[in-house]
Simulated scan of single mutants.
Amino acid sequence: MYQEERLGLIMDFLKNHNRISVEQICTLFDVSRDTARRDLVRLEEEKSIVRTRGGAILPSVHDEVKNYTNRLNTVTEEKKIIGNKAASLIFPGDRVILDASTTVQACAEQMENIDCTIITNSINQAEVLSSKPEINIQLLGGTLQKEHRFLYGSTVLEKLSKYHVDKVFIGVVGISENGLTIAHEEDGLVKRKMIQQAKQVIVLADHTKLGRTGFFCFADLQDIDLLITDNTPPKEFRELLRKNNVELLTANFEEGDE
Rank of each mutant, 00 (worst) to 15 (best):
81 I>N: 14
227 L>V: 15
234 P>E: 12
107 C>I: 01
83 G>N: 05
198 A>Y: 01
255 E>G: 11
252 N>C: 09
3 Q>M: 14
67 N>M: 04
112 E>L: 11
103 T>D: 07
178 N>T: 11
89 L>Q: 14
60 S>P: 02
149 R>Q: 13
162 K>L: 12
195 I>T: 02
94 D>P: 10
78 E>I: 07
235 K>V: 13
58 L>C: 01
227 L>Y: 13
70 N>M: 07
108 A>V: 06
136 N>S: 13
13 F>G: 00
150 F>A: 03
245 N>R: 12
198 A>K: 01
208 T>G: 01
148 H>I: 00
239 E>V: 12
225 D>M: 08
225 D>C: 08
31 V>T: 15
121 N>G: 06
145 Q>P: 00
163 Y>D: 03
188 G>R: 08
130 S>N: 13
34 D>V: 14
55 G>W: 07
89 L>S: 13
1 M>Q: 12
41 V>Q: 10
29 F>Y: 15
246 V>E: 02
179 G>V: 09
231 N>I: 04
198 A>W: 01
117 T>D: 05
187 D>G: 09
110 Q>V: 02
213 T>A: 15
72 L>W: 07
238 R>L: 10
217 C>T: 15
254 E>D: 11
84 N>Y: 09
180 L>E: 07
235 K>S: 12
75 V>A: 09
178 N>I: 06
128 V>G: 00
116 C>E: 09
4 E>P: 02
21 S>I: 01
206 D>C: 06
243 K>M: 06
197 Q>Y: 00
54 G>P: 05
236 E>W: 13
53 R>M: 10
149 R>L: 13
208 T>E: 11
168 V>M: 08
254 E>N: 14
156 V>W: 00
177 E>G: 11
181 T>H: 09
72 L>D: 02
82 I>L: 12
84 N>E: 09
228 I>R: 06
60 S>H: 08
17 H>W: 03
158 E>M: 05
254 E>G: 13
151 L>P: 00
248 L>G: 10
106 A>L: 06
59 P>R: 03
235 K>N: 07
109 E>W: 04
200 Q>W: 05
104 V>P: 01
188 G>C: 10
174 G>V: 12
31 V>W: 12
115 D>S: 14
27 T>L: 14
127 E>N: 05
202 I>G: 03
123 I>Y: 02
29 F>P: 07
137 I>V: 10
171 G>D: 05
251 A>H: 06
179 G>H: 07
